[in-house]
């Protein structure tokens, strides 16, 4: 494993001087439930994309194409906000994806 930078190599005062670098911090391992989206049910209303606090819903050309599992913490907001008549997202225990 690469050694983390030392005190001479980091900005002073705990400052973060690189905008948007939170993306480099992969928080996906915090997840205990994974959102699983049924593409047949999804109406691409993008409500999940609006509500996701981690910008983890991947949208291409106005359509939901997947979830960024490197950053999704599994909060379940997407599943909760998915319209009642649609219910395209199910939260599945992360352990079920393990070998």
């Amino acid at each position: 494993m690469k050694k983390a930078p030392g005190y001479k190599d980091i900005p002073i005062g705990g400052l973060i001087i690189e905008a948007g670098n939170a993306e480099k911090y992969e928080t996906g391992s915090w997840r205990s439930f994974r959102p699983v989206r049924d593409d047949e049910k999804c109406i691409h209303c993008l409500i999940c994309w609006i509500f996701c606090p981690d910008s983890a819903i991947i949208v291409e050309d106005g359509k939901v194409v997947g979830v960024d599992l490197d950053h999704c913490k599994g909060c379940g907001i997407c599943a909760r906000e998915c319209p009642k008549k649609v219910q395209a997202i199910t939260m599945v225990k992360e352990s079920e994806f393990r070998e």
């Binding site: 930078p5 005190y7 980091i10 002073i12 705990g14 400052l15 001087i17 905008a19």
Partner: peptide
């Protein structure tokens, strides 16, 4: 034009290094 973040969370991984910087200053 050069956005920065002041006062972020700084846990076991970097807090010590920031204190070491203060000692150096």
């Amino acid at each position: 034009d050069n956005p920065v973040t002041y006062g972020p969370l700084d846990l076991q991984d970097y807090y010590f290094e920031h204190k070491r910087q203060q000692i150096g200053a």
